[in-house]
């Protein structure tokens, strides 16, 4: 469904989108944002599930299983770490407004 030129347009537009998102970020959010983008490419999990689904023999199944394992690690780990970091920003907001 996504082929040739259409894909090229998606690549181009997504590329500019990513550039645009980062270009106005304060330094204090660089680490959380790197972590956040690390989480976002955890969408690879979806592809890994498909890869395991289409596996035809045991070898491919084992590799596909590994793909899902790693993809899930990326997605879940990325989320947990990013959320923990941003959680601290929230609490610091509160304290500074009290004091």
């Amino acid at each position: 469904m996504i082929e040739g030129l259409a894909a090229l347009y998606i690549f181009m537009l997504a590329g500019f989108t990513g550039y645009e998102i980062i270009s106005k970020v304060p330094v204090i959010l660089h680490t959380p944002l790197m972590s956040g983008s690390n989480f976002v490419h955890g969408i690879v999990l979806v592809g890994a599930m498909i890869a395991l689904g289409i596996a035809e023999n045991t070898t491919q199944q084992v590799i596909g299983f590994l793909a899902v394992l790693l993809g899930a690690g990326n997605a879940v780990g990325g989320y947990v770490v990013t959320e923990r970091m941003l959680e601290m920003f929230k609490s610091s907001n509160k304290e500074s407004s009290e004091g």
Partner: peptide
Amino acid sequence: VLGNAAMIIAGIVVGSAGSLL
């Protein structure tokens, strides 16, 4: 390769944002 738009968009957005970072 998998024809998966969500992966393409998320991946390329991170690719370009990460490159700039």
